[in-house]
Design a protein around this nucleic acid. Structure first.
Lengths: 219, 219
DNA sequence: AAAAAATAGATAAATTTATATCGAATGGCA
DNA sequence: TGCCATTCGATATAAATTTATCTATTTTTT
């Protein structure tokens, strides 16, 4: 039986989070004029286990890699961006146009990854109608109708922690299905709503904890 | 034999990343005048499994929780902040004073978590000598002597991806032991150097992938 | 034709994470 | 005083995930 490629396959989360890195690295190789890339080469550059990379890539590639040569770069990049959804643009809205919100709103990198943040909402009246980059800032009251009218499915939360849950509830009520949460709090959502927490304090805790342990053991 | 509390115990990374959330939640309860908190109550508020929370807390607490009552809040908060290193301030430097760098540099939350970013470095001469918040921006050339003089151990990288490795190498050479990397690239470091990647594109990939799968299965 | 490099697939081992269960201790309350 | 629900600690169990190992196959190079 032919191997299943690129269809209905299960890709682990850990794999998924490595794919963007593969993509950007292989992209560079393409720009340098390379035609083929082997999993082993990627692994070495990125300091990862070769088997791991091979497995990741073979799970995503639409064609089998050629022994001895590796994967054809053009095809592989296509498959990667297809898989990561870089081709079918997802629209998203953002709530909380503070410094972090503004940063995300204006970051061009996201759009190249298929995320198109169409508009920002904020409760501060001074901001209403202003533009950040080329994105308009609208009052919170407009959010419901906006979501319902456009059918946007992704919401980004960059409000302070104590307002996050309220914003989240509102989003969910209006039909948002996936939430990217930058507020430092866990969100309570109904079953079936996806939440990805971006939690800087937690990350910092992990890092500084490891450092402390290391310093201790080396003393 | 008495149970070992708070000494030489192994706390998993997943636990560690929840601790800041416990901390902030329990802190709130303290401010509301509560004296005791049970793992079960925390679990319910944070929408987590009670056993999970109990295990996490008992691993960190210096004293046993009292059956029926739970943990004494004051003690528990102390233990948590002790454990997370919020008490012994860690100094850090930041390289790359762009919009993200500036955001991190001025974020007050980190200092309450024991991270004191003392100075920012940037290669742009226009920024040299300026202050962001109360932090000075110095030229890259000063980094080496600064690190060696102060013995700072944590470096934060907020430069574009293509410069990250160079900055990283420089940091490591000067004696930095832990790196918090916001650049979208994997860093190559010698064994023993800690790296925590803050990788927004990867996170986004995971989220939008899950969303796509969900939309597909519901159609 | 042989050797080398790289892939694919299958399986096993190790690690991490989450959940369930049990007895024991405590404190409120009849 | 004595019952009883609540909460804890500890161990065991289950699930998920990651990593490693082994074998066989294909293709290119010599």
């Amino acid at each position: 039986m032919a191997t299943q490629h690129n269809t209905s396959l299960v890709v682990q989360k850990s794999t998924l989070s490595r794919l963007p890195l593969y993509y950007s690295h292989i992209r560079k190789m393409q720009q340098q004029g390379e035609k083929y890339v082997s999993a082993a080469a990627v692994a070495q550059s990125l300091n990862l286990n070769p088997v791991l990379v091979r497995k990741d890539l073979s799970g995503v590639s639409s064609v089998e890699g050629k022994p001895r040569a590796g994967f054809e770069i053009d095809t592989l990049l296509n498959d990667l961006s297809e898989f990561l959804g870089y081709n079918n643009v997802d629209e998203a809205i953002l709530v909380g146009v503070g410094s972090l919100g503004r940063l995300i709103l204006t970051n061009k990198e996201f759009s190249s990854m298929g995320l198109n943040i169409t508009v920002g909402f904020d409760k501060d009246p001074d901001l209403h109608g202003l533009q950040v980059g080329d994105k308009f800032i609208l009052p919170m009251e407009k959010m419901e109708s906006y979501i319902k009218r456009t059918g946007v499915k992704i919401g980004i939360i960059t409000v302070p922690a104590d307002q996050a849950q309220a914003v989240c509830d509102q989003m969910v009520e209006c039909g948002i299905l996936a939430i990217w949460n930058f507020a430092f709090t866990l969100l309570n959502v109904p079953q079936g709503i996806l939440v990805k927490n971006e939690n800087l304090p937690s990350s910092l805790a992990v890092l500084s904890q490891q450092l402390a342990k290391k310093l201790n053991s080396n003393k």
